[in-house]
Design a protein around this nucleic acid. Structure first.
Lengths: 133, 133
DNA sequence: CTGACTGCAAACGTTTTGCACGGTA
DNA sequence: TACCGTGCAAAACGTTTGCAGTCAG
């Protein structure tokens, strides 16, 4: 298990039990939406309020610890920030899978063609995963 | 100008003046969010209510005439459905540009590698456009 | 010890709904 | 004419805020 206490402190956030629970659950699920996160944190931490979830998700997002992933036809999910990657979304079971897509060549072409400087690539490929076939 | 009356009817929607105004504005802007759409429709159609905008956007989306595009750090925009394409988003001026990206080879690889059937690709490349450099 | 964090309740902005009226086909 | 669509107001929904009390550092 990662040292979330230290991660929080290096991001200028105090390591409260609520925050540790939030991070553990996000780390375990890798991608989770607000509602499921609230349900799961409440199991470990009955007194937590939804407002605390929101305040912390916002603080951690602002401090570059978490990232919101917007999905077509689904609620946004949050994940810990890591190297840039893309996502597979199964429309049947809702699972989100991290994938590595080589976009360098493509973005270079686009930058040249449209005279545009690309700083971020958001890619979601949706369909059916192997379990749901 | 396109024959929006006919387009609406072929999508099982009655061609009301409100809907024609909505479609004309979306067609003209190519991408527009709810608030701007409401502002612009009101200029041509002072009596229109926001509820009507929402009801129609939802009806047209359900009936495959419009499509919601979720953007990072921005409100969703709506566009008329056409061939699959990707989007460039300028973080400075907010402009959205349609681009054609060749994703066939990539998605084929991903499908094989992850045993996943891809039916839709949502790609948003964000950065700075030529006007904002 | 002090500023940051929590939990509650209230407020807020956005989207949806119910209903009476009006317009399209 | 029949049904669908509109506009209004109210309701529902998700998220944010203010505040008093608590806790991490």
């Amino acid at each position: 298990m990662k040292d979330f206490t230290n991660i929080l402190r290096t991001h200028n956030l105090k390591a409260t039990p609520q925050r540790l629970a939030i991070l553990e659950i996000i780390f375990f699920h890798r991608h989770i939406n607000i509602d499921k996160l609230y349900d799961e944190v409440k199991q470990k931490f009955d007194s937590i309020s939804l407002a605390t979830i929101y305040k912390n998700i916002n603080a951690m997002t602002k401090n570059m610890l978490l990232q919101e992933i917007k999905l077509p036809n689904e609620k946004s999910v949050y994940e810990m920030i890591k190297e840039e990657h893309s996502h597979l979304l199964c429309n049947k079971c809702g699972e989100v899978i991290d994938i590595q897509v080589e976009t360098k060549d493509i973005t270079k072409d686009i930058e040249k063609k449209y005279d545009f400087t690309i700083s971020q690539s958001d890619v979601v490929l949706s369909g059916t995963c192997k379990k749901c076939h």
